[in-house]
Design a protein around this nucleic acid. Structure first.
Lengths: 233, 233
DNA sequence: TAAATCCTTACATCCAATGTAAGTGGTGTT
DNA sequence: AACACCACTTACATTGGATGTAAGGATTTA
């Protein structure tokens, strides 16, 4: 069953949407704490996000941008203002669909189903900044071309991507690669990491592996040096 | 440069669309023979098809269906009738976007760019009935999961898919696999074909490999028995 | 500077993918 | 029916990429 998260401040509308979608067989979750929408959505990991742009507090655009940056969850934007600039802006930010209220029930459902169909099978794709990783085969898609990663390198990259930007301990990575953390020569991990680095360096990737001495590794945007908070990009 | 095929019977509108898209940097090709739209489009292989639903002769719906069955070209449907049933029908047939005239220039361009962006990177994906094949790594996507084919099996499947339903000679396949048709033990091909058959049989695939005695092989829908109406041979 | 940690390189091993070979089974022709 | 031809299967040897191992160099930290 596909799950849908709904972010809508008018409670009446939210309720209506919710029952409409549930009647269609979706698992609906309405979010009504608008202060941490992004976090909640990332935690829920719904198959789709239905997002009202006009919210109290943080703008829906901002939320859309954050979701799109941090996940591959499809976003359908709805709004009461039928204004072209809003639509263009939303699409630019990566929204997958844009609908204006009042929407016909059938149109909404058709568009939602359409978006979901497009994302079908992409469920085991991990999304990183500018690339996709197929968790089944460790095929890496960058810049319109595809490369097959060796299994170990794939598993390491997968482990790092689940904590994008944060440090992953060596123990965690070992477990992800060899299935257990009973003592495995950390050198083996080291060598595989070096190999992964070399592989990534040969591709037009916008990320880079950084090591945290004594702890583990993390994935970072490649142009940003670790120490220098000088605002370049 | 992305190419777009335009199918629109009102010449004025077609011209306007064409210049608008060209100004945006697309390579536009207007199709004005409406009797063989599908064939023309499949030959042109544009990056996107802009399709008017209201055509003289064959219905745009029919064309949309055919294109979607025989290729993975994204289709944007436009119409002058703003009728919900049309929209639902088009989306059901696999249309990627639906717009009603009169459309704002910016909206059309934004939607077109959005669709093109979605298909980015899918350029080296071969599409078959119910599955996708990545020509770069020979990753096969079926039914929401992915499998990595051995290179030779991948190359053979690729060769067969380019002539979906038609026979491909053994020589052609050999060339596709080993790069040359200087004499290579046909047995090698045979063995690899057997292996591919076994691989496909283990997956929920809707196609099957059939052999044509003395000639070569072809890809067929798996439920169809080989025996054609007696009239031929 | 010394110790800890991280990185690089080279080499040995292993395993999946492939090629080879020999034999079986089916099909069409005379 | 007998034969030739082609398609298929199976088993085994070979190969090459991926991995693990080991040793030594580089870097960071105290």
């Amino acid at each position: 069953m596909k799950s849908i998260a709904v972010v809508e401040d008018e409670k009446m509308v939210a309720k209506e949407l919710s029952s409409m979608l549930e009647k269609e067989g979706y698992d609906v979750h309405c979010i009504d704490d608008f202060s941490e929408v992004t976090e909640t959505v990332l935690e829920l990991r719904p198959d789709l996000l239905l997002l009202d742009i006009n919210l109290p507090g943080k703008s829906g655009f901002q939320i859309c941008r954050e979701i799109k940056n941090k996940s591959s969850i499809p976003v359908v934007v709805v709004t009461s203002r039928d204004q072209l600039p809003d639509e263009l802006h939303a699409l630019e930010l990566g929204a997958d669909e844009f609908l204006t209220k009042p929407y016909r029930k059938e149109r909404l459902l058709a568009r939602v189903a359409n978006v979901l169909r497009r994302y079908e099978g992409r469920s085991n794709m991990l999304e990183g900044p500018g690339f996709l990783l197929d968790r089944g085969t460790y095929t890496l898609y960058v810049d319109g071309s595809s490369v097959l990663l060796p299994k170990n390198q794939g598993k390491i990259l997968e482990a790092l991507m689940t904590e994008l930007g944060n440090v992953v301990t060596k123990e965690t990575i070992c477990e992800a690669v060899w299935g257990t953390s009973e003592f495995i020569d950390e050198n083996a991990l080291q060598v595989n990491l070096t190999r992964l680095k070399k592989t990534l360096a040969a591709l037009p990737m916008k990320v880079q592996i950084a090591s945290e001495r004594g702890v583990g590794y993390k994935l970072l945007p490649s142009d940003t040096s670790e120490k220098a908070p000088e605002g370049e990009v």
